[in-house]
């Protein structure tokens, strides 16, 4: 090992204190945990009134339009709008909730392909899932009919082949939201089996057997996204198929058995998905957002 001076180093893309003070204002950014704390409120008021920090309300008004968005939301008319408030500082606070939304677990969220599979594959498509999620959310007053994107986050790569890393790293990129409520500024992503396959990190290893961890992938996504709920394909239960097969006996028609299994499992999976959404709505209620 030896001393190796760095010849150059890019200026980090976050401001120095001086730069921040000249272009932005602290009172725009109030952590959620502070909002209902009367002691913090008193200190903040004292700090602002005595000018002990760089908070200035006039400055806030001046600089309120410089905030870069976290999400870019596409409205129904396909025009891109910054969902952080360009309209004023009150709504801006709402835009910057930075909610870390937990994963609501209903269903194992796993599936496979190849010789390890002992039941026909059953998955919920993006459309089937989106319909249930939107309908359930609407019952609680959330309208996920807009679309949007999340960008610049640590999005998870997946691994679908046996023996590889369960968490094969992340990438910085753009993720389309599957639905977005522009008023509440909350979106959702549904992790389907196809998502798990398309986020697979290309490597040297290949196999004829694949496994899909929708729940695990969703869990990793929740760690990185804010203001975005992550739902996942609950996955089918092969035990149902085994039970059907046993009760049908040796002469059962494979095709019929598969169709019956698919219908039964789809109904259960849709219920599980709906339960994920209901849990999320109850969580939002608890947070005082709806």
């Amino acid at each position: 090992m030896k001393i190796e001076p760095l010849r150059s180093y890019d200026t980090p893309e976050y401001p120095t204190a001086e730069k921040f003070r000249s272009t932005d204002v602290l009172t725009k950014y109030i952590p959620r945990r502070w909002r209902y704390n009367k002691w913090v409120g008193k200190v903040l008021l004292f700090v602002v009134l005595t000018g002990l920090c760089s908070c200035s309300l006039e400055k806030g008004e001046e600089s309120g339009r410089h905030t870069e968005p976290h999400h870019i939301a596409k409205t129904g008319s396909d025009t891109e709008t910054h969902h952080t408030a360009e309209t004023g500082s009150d709504t801006e606070t709402a835009a910057k909730r930075n909610l870390v939304i937990p994963l609501f677990v209903h269903g194992e969220g796993r599936g496979s392909y190849g010789c390890v599979s002992i039941a026909p594959p059953v998955y919920l498509s993006e459309d089937e899932a989106a319909q249930v999620i939107r309908e359930t959310a609407l019952e609680y007053g959330l309208d996920f009919s807009d679309r949007g994107n999340v960008y610049g986050e640590e999005l998870p790569y997946t691994n679908i082949f046996p023996g590889g890393d369960k968490e094969p790293g992340t990438y910085e990129g753009e993720l389309p939201l599957d639905g977005y409520d522009a008023e509440k500024q909350i979106g959702f992503v549904y992790v389907s089996k196809n998502d798990v396959v398309s986020w697979h990190k290309q490597g040297e290893m290949m196999a004829s057997v694949e496994s899909y961890d929708m729940q695990g992938t969703a869990e990793r996504l929740t760690r990185t996204l804010t203001d975005t709920a992550v739902f996942y394909d609950p996955g089918s239960d092969f035990n149902t198929f085994m039970e059907l097969q046993n009760s049908a006996g040796e002469n059962a028609d494979w095709q019929e058995l598969s169709e019956e299994y698919e219908a039964m499992e789809k109904a259960r999976m849709l219920e599980d998905l709906r339960a994920q959404v209901v849990d999320f709505m109850e969580w939002l209620k608890g947070e005082g957002i709806i």
Partner: peptide, 15 residues
């Protein structure tokens, strides 16, 4: 970049 409120307060607020 995500304008995380806690990060900004922690790092930029002397108080």
């Amino acid at each position: 970049r995500g304008r995380n409120a806690l990060f900004i307060q922690k790092q930029y607020n002397d108080m």
